[in-house]
Amino acid sequence: MPNPGRADETRGLAGDVTLRFSCSAPQASVEVKANTAGFNAMACLHRDLSGFHDANIIVEFSKVAWFDGHLTAALDLVFRQAACRRNVVRLSGLRPRLRDTFCKNHLISKRKFDRHNTVMPIRAFEVDQALAFSGYAKRHLDRPEMPNMTAALRRCFFESIDEIFANAALHARASLPVIVGGQYFPRRQVLAFAIVDGGEGMQRAVCAKLHRALSPAEAIAWAMEPYNTTRQGDVPGGLGSKVLREFIEENGGRITVVSAGGLWQQHGALVSRRHLAAPYPGTAVLLEMKTIAALPHRPVEIPDPNNIW
């Protein structure tokens, strides 16, 4: 079945509605990255699209000079949400470089060969496909282009992204699949990965758990604290974020979590949070790790097997 959210580049037709991406940005040319401005642009596009049902919509990208490859997974969710309302979304005004990015990352159906082998194209997984996801991540990331990682760091990275997927699968409660994608940036020496779900977002679950009103950013901050979990019942939780955060602190990279109207970010050991101009339609977790990881693993005390239980 073709991807319902996949948008093709097209020219405008009579009767089409045209929306401009990043229309509120003052600059003539914008770069979409994993930051507040980038997610504001996607969230505002979702807000604008939300008013339409059964419509032919053209999203105009002429202001966009750069779009981080791994963020195409986050944009794909916006298009899928629009497709759920039976809209047909097409893209126009793509600069050549942007068209390349969207083709290589499979955001649009036109394909382009990734001769540098730096792309993890977008793929959708159902929540019970953790094993398939793990194989996908291994196939696309465990390769010679990902240099200078110690074996320990490499394993830690893979387990970290498995943790993100497991958390998305456990908490999303979404009818849409989990969307993943990634990009290796050789010049920046950064390996970036995105896992996106179209679920209810963290705010509702956290507020229900705490019986208290929190902003979206506050809810993410709570959920990212080690040992905090919205899970109730027979299975404990709250460790995935601990594993991830320790990994990022050690690596010096960055983790960004966007859920509804909040953005939470940890860069190395520094944490910040922001409010978005409009709600993003789900939760996106972005992992950006440095591949120049000459950093030694922090020594940890190895537990005695006789004293585990």
């Binding site: 793990s134 394993r155 893979f158 387990e159 498995d162 943790e163 497991a166 958390n167 456990l170 027979d234 299975v235 404990p236 939780g237 460790l239 995935g240 601990k242 594993v243 239980w309």
Partner: peptide
Amino acid sequence: RMTTAFLNTAVGQLYGAFPPDRLR
């Protein structure tokens, strides 16, 4: 490869069914 999500269900939830002394 192993995640805490796997371990939480595999062994973590045992502590909701049995007292720690018995599991030890």
